[in-house]
Design a protein around this nucleic acid. Structure first.
Lengths: 207, 207
DNA sequence: CAGGTTTTCGCCTAACGGTCGAAAACGTGG
DNA sequence: CCACGTTTTCGACCGTTAGGCGAAAACCTG
């Protein structure tokens, strides 16, 4: 989600939301406030620090050190945004201001990695979804097709997925009705990565 | 590696090295400068950003926002440090100043995770080492014993390990001479994580 | 009811990681 | 110099995991 700058520098280029750190807030509180103020994005399903961008020349004028965040919104949420703000697909970004394109690349890379070795998928998905829909989310985020069969099996084996019992009606072109799933409650936050080189003899998944 | 504070606040407590960001450097250049100035640590094998610590009350007095780093030094390096500075085992830290204990915990956790799903091990090991020595490093960093057999196989299968051909003489208690290994050159920086849910049909390990 | 479409499920296979134990190669003490 | 203890190395076994394929299920349209 980007907003179009009105003023120089970099007028008419697209920019990530953000702003100055307040005296009585930490950086996470600050970015949540910025998002709530500038655009109506309150239903963040996941927020994590990405990295500090501190090149002295990253913005013209006085020194600005930025703490970049990765923020995710479930796919069923479509927040109303101001007229100068719009959503953009991550693999077709417009001309961005400052180093914001590099920040977006880092965010995309981080998301792809964490989708694979944590349970972060819950942050992209609506409360209930079909395997096809989840597959589309994973494919879009990772940048390549994943197998629906394998996705369902991997997530199920990790104990993350749960059938709701419901189904959805097929589209106008027919097809078998798809079963609905949800992420099991209690797994709705990022857990430890699924590690190799585990501790001996106790088959725990986290540390 | 901690240094003992001489002045208030938190006098006589142990503190992570660090300092203010200069006008013409980014945060990574800054931490490398701090380490080179305050203590003689120039042979860092790996440096990465950990997180920003920005709680308004994390230090008394004026607001200080800290960008914490994880820095690794190979086990064969034993830098000479000033008299107020000393190495401490990460699972037996002394009383630390400010929020530095939380920073250490985060660093330790990050190291353990990355050891498992990346090739970060090279940053801990000397140029040549035995499997036993590597096993000790991994066990210390992870906090639990790992199998020497399994460690060698996993790292070899990932194409990270290479025998040098040399051996070391056994200790006074005997034993078979241990073969020497090295991390293959070209793998001496952190690569992409070894992901599950790979792209279809091309068996690549990165993205 | 035939044919097309989408989803689901079982099966097969390769790869991976955990474990164990035998064998190799060295010291030491009798 | 030989039996014994020690440490490392290596092969073997096995359960688990993931990728791939194709058949079956369940729906639509005409």
């Amino acid at each position: 989600m980007l907003w179009e700058r009105a003023r120089e520098p970099h007028a008419h280029r697209w920019s990530l939301p953000g702003g100055g750190l307040g005296d009585d807030e930490d950086v996470e509180a600050s970015i949540r406030r910025q998002l709530a103020e500038k655009v109506d994005v309150r239903q963040l399903s996941h927020v994590e620090q990405l990295a500090v961008f501190s090149n002295p020349a990253r913005v013209p004028g006085p020194r600005v050190v930025a703490t970049a965040f990765l923020g995710l919104v479930p796919s069923h949420i479509d927040p109303v945004v101001p007229s100068d703000t719009a959503w953009h697909p991550v693999d077709a970004l417009p001309a961005t201001a400052f180093d914001h394109e590099a920040i977006c690349r880092r965010a995309r890379s981080r998301l792809a990695s964490k989708l694979s070795y944590t349970n972060l998928g819950f942050a992209l998905a609506p409360p209930e979804f079909t395997i096809s829909a989840l597959r589309a989310l994973y494919s879009a985020a990772l940048g390549y097709k994943v197998s629906a069969t394998n996705l369902q099996r991997v997530l199920s084996r990790r104990g993350l997925l749960e059938p709701t019992g419901g189904t959805v009606q097929p589209g106008p072109s027919g097809g078998r009705p798809a079963a609905l799933f949800r992420f099991v409650s209690g797994q709705m936050r990022v857990t430890d990565p699924f590690a190799v080189l585990r501790p001996p003899s106790t088959r725990s998944l986290g540390s």
